[in-house]
Amino acid sequence: MGKTFWFYTGSKSLLMLSDIVFVMTITFVIYQDTQSATYAALFPLIRTLCQLLAGLISPVLIDRFQAYRLLKWLPLARLVMMILFTTQFHFFQQHIVWLFGALILISMTGGFISPLLQAIMPMLVQANQLVQANSTASIFQQIVQIAGYSFTGILVLWIGSTYLLAFTCLMIVCSYLLFLPVLPLLQEENTTQRTNQLNSFKDGWTVIWKNKMIRTLTFMDVCENIAGSVWIGAITLAFVTHDLNRSEDWWGFINAAYYTGAIIGGLLAAWFSRFIQKQLLLFMATGSFIYAVLTILFAMNSLPWLALLLCILMGPAYQIRDVSQQTILQTATPTRDLSKVYSAHYVLSSVSAGLSIFFVGFIADTFGARFVYLLGGLFVLVCSGIAILAFMMQKKRAAV
């Protein structure tokens, strides 16, 4: 892996960290100003809806303006918005309508940038290095998430929201500077502009529907997003307090244990990348199956220390599954269509996750958090069954 990969990984990690800090800071400020959990919850909801809309529109923009131009100018536009937002933050704090209007614009630009960035990885490394590259990038992302979610709340109280937003702008500047060496690669991938916007809109969905492997991966992603909603904070907190009979501190321990396992998983995936690269479907199926079994055991368990151990073990299983799945998607999709496929994936993920969060809350209130985790484990078990069938079919075709 060359220098360009490290520039890309550093840029994307900084951008992710700036996004986490921004979201947590604004959520904290809205709650502090309004003393309303409803208003505070509105921002993540609006942000998700805006990114969903951006995911629908981005294929048209990609064909109209091309990825090179979009990734050259969109981050700058977002930076200008962030600087204006930060310098006029006192005004926005006093006018909630203007605040949400600004947040909508900032969230939309983030939604346009995300699928474009995800599609770049196959351009940076050779096909036989994709597993190592994806797992290495995943390690950085997990570290960023731990740092962002662990320290932002403390920093808001220590240095104040305005200074923290200024720091967010600085991170976006550094992210853009690190991304500049990557831009020439995108210029080489220039494609012909289209005039038919309807075809541009349908491209990603068409690839998913026609390519059997991508269609299978997409269905698995939807199922796993539904299962992943069981890990939202409220459900985990309810499980810790009611089923494990421990204080709220253990909520933090559970999260820390999972992220620790995720980092270990990323390191293992990078270490064994050559073996994983040769049997992507096998490792995806195995990782998914182990993760499902561990989730079911977690649901049935009542021992706090065992819950921590199971969360640590979930990390490597999930990371190996995720890295394998990402690599299969990247290799099975033509490079010119990858950003559009990611856009379609993002739309499906947002819809499935959003709807499942609502139903998961209802199920938890009715049947308890333990039943929710059991249901999530069974969903992942279905996904692992699909992956095992796909592996067996691939093996059968290879034998013919």
Rank of each mutant, 00 (worst) to 15 (best):
Arg321Asn: 15
Ile263Cys: 05
Tyr258Thr: 03
Asn225Lys: 10
Val293Leu: 11
Gln325Thr: 14
Val351Asp: 04
Ile264Phe: 08
Ile235Asn: 04
Leu338Arg: 07
Glu224Cys: 13
Ala227Lys: 09
Ile320Asp: 01
Ser324Ile: 10
Leu306Ile: 13
Leu355Cys: 13
Leu308Trp: 04
Val341Lys: 01
Gly265Cys: 09
Ser350Ala: 15
Phe275Pro: 04
Tyr342Cys: 00
Leu268Asp: 01
Phe275Asn: 12
Pro334His: 11
Val222Gly: 02
Trp231Thr: 06
Gly233Thr: 07
Ala262Arg: 11
Asp337Ile: 12
Gln319Ser: 06
Ser352Gly: 03
Gln277Ile: 00
Tyr318Asn: 13
Tyr291Gln: 03
Ala299Met: 04
Ala353Gln: 14
Gln319Thr: 13
Gly315His: 04
Leu308Ala: 08
Leu313Ile: 12
Asp322Ser: 14
Leu303Ser: 04
Ser247Arg: 06
Ser339Ile: 02
Leu310Tyr: 11
Cys223Tyr: 05
Ser352Arg: 04
Gly266Tyr: 00
Val351Lys: 05
Ala299Glu: 01
Leu268Asn: 05
Trp231Glu: 03
Val341Ser: 07
Ser324His: 05
Pro304Leu: 00
Ala353Ser: 14
Val341Arg: 03
Ile290Asp: 02
Ser339His: 05
Gly287Met: 04
Leu303Trp: 13
Thr295Val: 13
Arg321His: 15
Val351His: 09
Ser273Phe: 08
Ile263Ala: 02
Phe272Arg: 12
Phe298Lys: 01
Val341His: 02
Asp221His: 13
Gly265Ile: 08
Cys223Lys: 08
His242Gly: 02
Ala292Val: 01
Ala332Tyr: 08
Val293Thr: 09
Leu267Met: 11
Val323Leu: 01
Ser288Val: 09
Thr260Lys: 04
Ala234Lys: 11
Asn255Tyr: 13
Tyr259Glu: 05
Gln319Trp: 01
Trp250His: 14
Asn245Leu: 14
Ala256Leu: 06
Ser339Tyr: 03
Ile263Ser: 03
Ala332Thr: 07
Pro316Ala: 10
Thr241Pro: 07
Leu348Gln: 06
Leu306Val: 11
Asp221Ser: 12
Asp322Phe: 09
Trp231Leu: 12
Asn245Cys: 05
Trp250Cys: 01
Gln326Glu: 05
Leu355Met: 15
Phe289Ser: 10
Ile296Gln: 00
Gln330Ala: 00
His242Ile: 02
Leu281Thr: 09
Ser247Ile: 07
Asn255Asp: 08
Ile357Arg: 14
Pro316Trp: 06
Val230Pro: 09
Phe253Asn: 09
Val222Gln: 03
Val323Arg: 08
Val222Arg: 03
Leu294Arg: 00
Leu309Ser: 12
Trp305Gly: 09
Ile232Glu: 02
Asp337Gln: 15
Gly261Lys: 02
Phe289Ile: 10
Ser302Phe: 03
Arg274Gly: 00
Leu309Gly: 07
Arg246Asn: 09
Ser288Met: 12
Val293Asn: 00
Phe272Asp: 02
Leu237Trp: 06
Ser247Cys: 10
Val351Ser: 01
Tyr259Met: 10
Leu348Met: 10
Val240Tyr: 06
Leu348Phe: 12
Leu268Glu: 07
Ile232Val: 11
Asn301Pro: 10
Gly287His: 02
Arg336Lys: 12
Val240Leu: 06
Ala332Met: 08
Val347Thr: 09
Leu310Ser: 05
Val323Trp: 05
Gln279Gly: 00
